[in-house]
Computed example of a mutant assay.
Amino acid sequence: MTTVAIISQKGGAGKTTLALHLAAAAVDDGRVALIVDTDPQATASQWAGWRKDEPPEVIDSPPPRLAAKVEQAQAQGAEFIVIDTPPHADSAARAAVEAADLVLIPCRPSAFDLSAIQTTSKLVQLLRKPAFVVFTAGPPNAPRVYQEAGELVESFGTPPCPFQMSDRAAFRHASAEGRTAMELEPDGKAADEVRQLYKWTCRQVDVLAKYQDGKAAA
């Protein structure tokens, strides 16, 4: 089983969008995926309600119960768990990091957002968990922006993920409809970004993803 924590002390970083799409990519990859929503705003849970019974399943959990919920989900057959956390909540972030195999820190590639993730970087370093910064909601075609942002987060002690989730309309439209970018535009650029990020995530925890050339293998 793989457990990925999505954490950031900065609001508006795209945590829930990243969590939903990673879990949905795992479902497309033929795995039993689950999102654990620790955010009191329950955005992920609301999205799941719009989807009716379509996977991935979303359950909520207060931070003190998170480890038990993850263990229970594993016992019930969950293969890929993504923990979505609220901003400005040290207890939830710490519990998520402790329960995770891998930590992803979403961050917009802007000066204020980049500066704000230093607290999150220090937390994962303190708890000695593998962690990467995932740039979100940035310009689709701006390699220099991502290069400079990557160099900065590297200086914080947390390396950047080589794949981004750019600012694309498909992410906004899909979430508003209780769908994913892969469902809305299966061959679109947003969907491809998610698949690449999912494959990379799996490699970090030594899980073989079935995606090949941007599409699920038969």
Rank of each mutant, 00 (worst) to 15 (best):
M1L: 04
T3W: 03
V4G: 11
V4R: 07
I6T: 03
I7S: 08
G11K: 04
A13M: 12
A13W: 05
T16A: 04
A19N: 02
L20Q: 08
L22T: 05
G30T: 13
R31G: 08
L34H: 01
D37M: 06
D37H: 10
T38A: 05
T43P: 05
S45F: 07
Q46G: 09
Q46K: 11
K52N: 12
E57Q: 13
D60S: 13
P63G: 05
A67H: 11
K69R: 14
K69I: 14
A73V: 15
Q74M: 15
Q76F: 13
Q76A: 14
Q76H: 12
G77D: 06
A78I: 06
V82Y: 05
D84H: 01
T85Y: 04
P86K: 03
D90P: 07
A93V: 09
L102Y: 02
P109Q: 03
D113S: 07
T119P: 02
T120I: 05
K122G: 10
R128V: 11
P130M: 12
F132D: 11
F135M: 02
A137N: 04
A142Y: 10
G150N: 08
L152R: 08
E154M: 14
C161N: 15
C161I: 15
Q164V: 15
M165W: 14
H173V: 14
A174Q: 02
S175H: 06
R179V: 00
T180M: 01
A181M: 02
E185H: 06
D187Q: 14
G188W: 04
V194I: 12
R195G: 00
R195Y: 08
Y198V: 01
K199Q: 10
K199V: 13
W200T: 05
V205S: 12
V207P: 01
Y211M: 01
G214R: 12
